[in-house]
């Protein structure tokens, strides 16, 4: 089974980004991928106060193909927690933070209490982890250290300029998993597998704007062993959300 652990379903006219669930599934099909983890671009309740339900309805059109991650703005107090609980009740499998849009520090108390709540559901928290302030590996690692019972996924594994740092923080924090989307260096995937183990590296594409087919090719070009490739391409992701409780 191949799982794409980071994709988006949303409609953002201001950005010209129209990414319906049907487009996501067609991109999965083109790449031979079984399942995609999807999240919105907006951080509920901002921009679209109904985003959690909206995405759930979009996913329902493609049973078995899409799993939801709730992208939530942590600054809305109890409403943020209620949105996360609502998401898990609807069958979501994890929490997503993108500090470029929320400007919420990963280790701020508002963020940490949502991460703790996700961990109570045995669900991971996926961070955008790139080159911008508030998103770099060391910054996200503060959250990993503060909530050691949580599984923290570094989406993009540090992007263009923080890839080495992402591998280093994953070595320091066993609750960190690296996710490969967008990051353009296949050899860094091989290095990550060598240094932290294939069980803690996950394939993703950040599709549908990014090509799942090309990001999957990145895993193949990395030259992993067949057993490690199976883990990275889907087994790790499957295991990670199999134990999520509503």
């Amino acid at each position: 089974m191949i799982i794409d652990a980071h994709m988006h379903v949303d409609d953002i006219p201001a950005l010209g980004w129209k990414m319906g669930a049907d487009l996501v599934v067609s991109r999965l099909d083109q790449a031979g991928i079984d399942v995609g983890w999807v999240m919105t671009i907006v951080d509920a309740p901002e921009v679209n106060s109904n985003a959690i339900e909206w995405l759930a309805e979009a996913m329902a059109e493609f049973p078995g193909r899409l799993e939801g991650f709730a992208r939530i703005h942590p600054w809305y107090g109890d409403l943020s927690l209620e949105l996360l609980d609502r998401a898990f009740a609807l069958g979501y499998k994890g929490l997503k933070f993108h500090a470029v849009t929320t400007i919420a520090h990963p280790s701020g108390e508002d963020s940490l209490r949502l991460i703790r709540r996700a961990a109570e559901h045995n669900a991971p928290t996926l961070f955008h982890c790139g080159d911008e302030p508030l998103t770099t590996p060391l910054t996200v690692a503060f959250a990993a250290a503060a909530v050691p019972q949580a599984t923290i996924i570094l989406g993009h594994m540090g992007a263009y300029l923080h890839t080495d740092e992402a591998i280093e923080v994953a070595e320091r924090h066993e609750n960190i998993i690296l996710e490969t989307s967008g990051m353009p260096y296949p050899h860094k995937i091989a290095e990550a597998v060598r240094r932290i183990g294939a069980e803690r590296v996950m394939f993703a594409s950040d599709g549908p704007g990014c090509s799942p087919k090309i990001d999957l090719e990145k895993i193949r070009v990395a030259g992993l062993s067949p057993a490690d490739e199976l883990l990275v391409m889907g087994l790790n992701a499957r295991k990670l959300i199999d134990g999520v409780v509503k």
Partner: peptide, 8 residues
């Protein structure tokens, strides 16, 4: 023309 994985 860009180096940013948020599309900024």
């Amino acid at each position: 023309g860009q180096i940013n994985l948020s599309g900024l």
